[in-house]
Computed example of a mutant assay.
Amino acid sequence: MVRWWDHWLKGKDTGVMDEPMVRAWMQESVSLEPSYNDRPGRWVAEPGWPSPKIRMETWKLGRYRLLPDGAEVQTGPDVELLSPLSVGMFAGK
């Protein structure tokens, strides 16, 4: 980050613009815990964005899953989510 700021704010040639445009940490699937000492995964990078490896897809919200475009949407009773699963011990469930 310091190299990026030095490049854009101080005009220094840090070489940061020669690196991939996008970097992301891809976490591996692990069992749910309140916290982790180590979270396995790997770094991935793309030279530009949007990546030529990306293709647009449309998905519909189904009763218990996402449905690909063209799939028949089944109707049924409403499903309510009452628990705030975005915070605390239940985050990620």
Rank of each mutant, 00 (worst) to 15 (best):
M1V: 03
M1N: 08
M1S: 15
V2Y: 03
W4Y: 15
W4L: 12
W4M: 09
W4T: 13
D6T: 01
H7C: 08
H7V: 00
W8P: 01
L9Y: 02
L9V: 00
K10T: 01
K10D: 02
K10V: 00
K10G: 01
G11S: 08
K12D: 04
K12W: 01
T14P: 11
G15C: 09
M17T: 15
M17N: 13
D18S: 15
D18A: 11
E19F: 05
E19L: 10
M21L: 15
M21P: 02
V22R: 13
V22A: 13
R23T: 07
R23P: 02
R23E: 09
R23M: 10
R23A: 06
A24L: 10
W25K: 09
M26R: 11
M26K: 09
Q27D: 11
Q27A: 15
E28M: 05
E28I: 00
S29H: 06
V30M: 12
S31A: 12
L32T: 07
L32K: 10
E33I: 00
Y36I: 01
N37D: 12
N37Y: 01
D38G: 06
D38R: 10
D38T: 07
R39V: 11
R39H: 13
R39I: 04
R39E: 08
P40L: 00
P40F: 00
G41C: 01
G41F: 02
G41P: 09
R42W: 00
R42F: 04
W43T: 13
V44I: 05
V44R: 05
A45E: 06
A45N: 09
A45Q: 03
P47G: 11
P47A: 05
W49R: 09
W49E: 13
W49K: 05
W49L: 08
P50R: 04
S51Y: 01
S51W: 01
S51C: 03
P52E: 03
K53P: 06
K53T: 11
K53S: 15
R55V: 00
R55Q: 12
M56D: 12
T58N: 11
W59A: 12
K60N: 15
K60Q: 15
L61P: 02
L61H: 10
G62N: 05
G62K: 04
R63L: 14
Y64K: 14
R65W: 04
R65L: 05
L66T: 07
L66H: 09
L67E: 08
L67D: 13
P68K: 04
P68I: 00
P68V: 01
G70K: 04
A71G: 03
A71R: 03
E72H: 14
E72T: 12
V73K: 13
V73Q: 11
V73N: 07
Q74A: 15
Q74S: 11
T75Q: 06
G76I: 01
G76Y: 03
P77V: 02
P77M: 00
P77F: 02
D78V: 02
D78K: 12
D78G: 15
D78N: 08
V79K: 08
E80P: 05
L81W: 07
L81D: 07
L81M: 04
L82Q: 07
S83L: 09
S83C: 14
P84F: 02
P84C: 07
S86I: 00
S86C: 06
S86T: 08
M89N: 12
A91L: 06
A91R: 11
G92P: 05
G92R: 02
K93H: 08
K93F: 07
K93S: 09
